[in-house]
Design a binder for these strands. Sequence first.
DNA 1: CACCCCCGCGCG
DNA 2: AAAGCGCGCGGGGGTG
Length: 541
Amino acid sequence: MEILVHPAGEQTVHLLELGTEQRPTAQVTHPRADLARVVARHEREQSVRWVWADTAALVPELIDAGVRVGRCLDLRLCRAILAHAAPGRDWPDLGWTAVTAAAPPGEVVPPTLWEETATTQTLSLAEVLAERELQQAAVAAGAGPERMRLLLAAESAGALVAAEIAADGLPWDRAVHEELLTEMLGPRPAAGARPARLERLAGQVREHLAAPTLNPDSQPDLLRTLRRSGLDVQSTSKWEIGRLDHPVVAPLLEYKKLARLLSANGWGWLDHWVLPGTSPDHRHRFRPDYVPGGVVTGRWATSGGGALQLPKSLRRAVRADPGWRLVVADAAQIEPRVLAAMASDDALAAAGQAGDLYQGLVDRGIMATRAEAKVAMLGALYGATTGEAGRLMPRLIRAYPRATAVVEEAARTGEAGGTVHTWLGRTTPPPPPSWRERQSGRDRGRFTRNFVVQGTAAEWALCWMGEIRRRLAALAPLPERAHLVFFLHDEVIVHTPADMADQVASEIRAAATEAGRLLFGATAVAFPLDVAIVDSYGETD
DNA sequence: CACCCCCGCGCG
DNA sequence: AAAGCGCGCGGGGGTG
């Protein structure tokens, strides 16, 4: 059954059973403080799909109260998908344009910001009910109602996962992180000062360039100084500097690497984003602020913390609690596999059957080396026309005409100003009316080409995670339940009691197969994972 | 001072 | 200095 939850102000909350004929059959009003208890009772008694405007606005208080829900429908996220899929319908403005950014931990948020983001509070019950009915009508009238329902369910499950990861946090070993920083940068400096190692490197750079006042953090200053030293560079990128023959290259590249580490994940980041866990025998926790559906293609984004850019060099600091383990799983070559399934390309499916799809291309004599196979495949997915990828393209098209036709077709549609959609029906926004003035058709074509694959891969990942979440909930009750703690496009980390790690690993594998079946039915495409059971994320590099 | 853009680099 | 997609983030430096 479906129950709509609608907070009315700070004090009360309405619960409405949604009848099969889309009309509410029973409405109950509770004090807001009772919400978690009421939700928990329903969860115990029957299988419920909760329907609400905004998961991020409701679920954290349930989690705080120790209550987890099985399924939901997040109307705000569904609206974002449906408004693009059915642009002809008359969608009222509900103030849902912006993604809700949660406050970083410990941050004092100005009240005005809260007022701007807490837009769902102002909606009336009637508006939410009307929205729900509009959405159902749009789904039913759409090109693929079944697929769209799966997408909306998966997107909503993602919102639950994101809320739970924020609550549970990624276990983080502060001491390991601090050791790494000290090792690479030197001891923690006074606020605003450069760490010793960086200061030394800056000195070497200034010396090699005979520029005693150079600020290596200033791109204009650095570019000017390099050119004045007779170095023919157009930028200060490490790519370009790396091919120079000059004694400044080594210290400068090292400086850039370490300066990046300091500014992105230094002591400041650690203080701000890694906080004590809820229990004394826990490690600290990094709580990523994921934004489900934050990317046009349907990938997640982040808003603060940079969880999706966690440098590999720091992954050693991600460590399970004592008595717990991390199960790290990533989907091997998910984008080409998804493409093979979309195109029913049995030849490409067969190449990926044994495990490594790129190696499969080599074994079949299509490409000479694995590196070549990867470059060619990524080139096809991204729309490469020149260089090595462009040169290899004809061989790929000849070997896999069905799969390559899917992305070529998406590119042609985009070049002509059309919209394309993913397997489950997420649609590109239309190009703005004046797009040709600012963007070439080729640019738009590369975007739509990649959209269908990146977006469908994101759908697979959502189904995978939703299925993992469902299976883990069935495995054990809280608080000893294994739980998702990290997500990175095609990779997950589950934090699990050590004695359940093997079981968790096999559930994660089964979930991957199930995700493929949910999206594509009986497909010839395999969705293998690389799975590792470790104490530290760094062990998987 | 707040705001915005550019650049460069981390991730997939 | 990217060929070839999608992002977030921080620092510098300019503008109002």
